Amino acid sequence: MPRRPPLPREYIERVAEIVALLPESYEQDAWTGVRWRVRNATIVHLFGGEDQRFRLVFRGDPDEVVAFEHMGEPYFKAGWGTDVIGVVIDEQTDWDEVAELLTASYCLMAPAKLVAQVQPNP
């Protein structure tokens, strides 16, 4: 059985930089990879797959779920949860887009009081 690759420090740092702007978010080791949470809800999970590729999974609203299910690489709908979507990340990843997606995931998972503190993207 293939092993999961170690996460590149650069990917962890990039996600951490994005999530650090979200109130009361924090980083935590996951069963594999790293996840970021608000309260007890996961905002995003970064991990390496047995196929040696790296993925971010996060929450999406129903329209995003349908879109991600049909857009194809690098986007996908996860095989678990009704609102879990993701993106394969690599050297071509658009980190501005990732920031928007992770902010939206946060807004779906965080209490309204915290969501009200989120600064809109310039």
Rank of each mutant, 00 (worst) to 15 (best):
A99H: 04
C107F: 01
D96F: 03
P120K: 12
D94H: 04
W95S: 13
L22T: 07
E24R: 11
H45G: 05
E100C: 10
L108D: 03
E27A: 01
R37S: 15
A110C: 07
V57C: 06
G60R: 06
Q52C: 14
D63R: 07
L21T: 15
P62V: 05
W31E: 04
M1E: 08
A16R: 15
R55M: 07
R35E: 01
M71F: 00
F68I: 05
P5D: 11
L7E: 07
R14K: 14
C107H: 00
A67L: 03
G81Y: 10
G49C: 08
G79H: 00
G49P: 13
L56Y: 12
V115G: 08
V88A: 04
F58Q: 14
I12E: 13
E69Y: 09
F47D: 10
E73T: 14
R9I: 13
L108G: 01
P122M: 12
G72K: 06
L22E: 05
F68K: 06
D51S: 11
D96M: 02
N40M: 01
L7C: 07
A67K: 05
A104Q: 14
F47P: 12
E27L: 04
W36S: 02
P5W: 03
V87N: 05
Q28I: 12
D83F: 02
G60L: 09
I43P: 14
G79M: 02
A116F: 05
V84C: 11
V19S: 03
V118A: 03
E100P: 14
E13G: 04
E73A: 15
Y75C: 07
Y75D: 08
V88F: 08
R35W: 13
D51G: 09
F54T: 05
E73G: 00
E100F: 14
G60F: 09
V66S: 09
D51L: 11
P6S: 12
E10G: 10
R4Y: 08
G72N: 04
N40D: 12
P122K: 09
L56H: 08
L102M: 04
A16N: 13
F68L: 11
A20M: 03
S105Q: 04
P2S: 13
T103H: 02
A41K: 15
N121W: 06
E27F: 09
L7H: 03
A104S: 12
P5V: 04
E13D: 13
G72C: 05
R55P: 00
N40P: 11
E24Q: 13
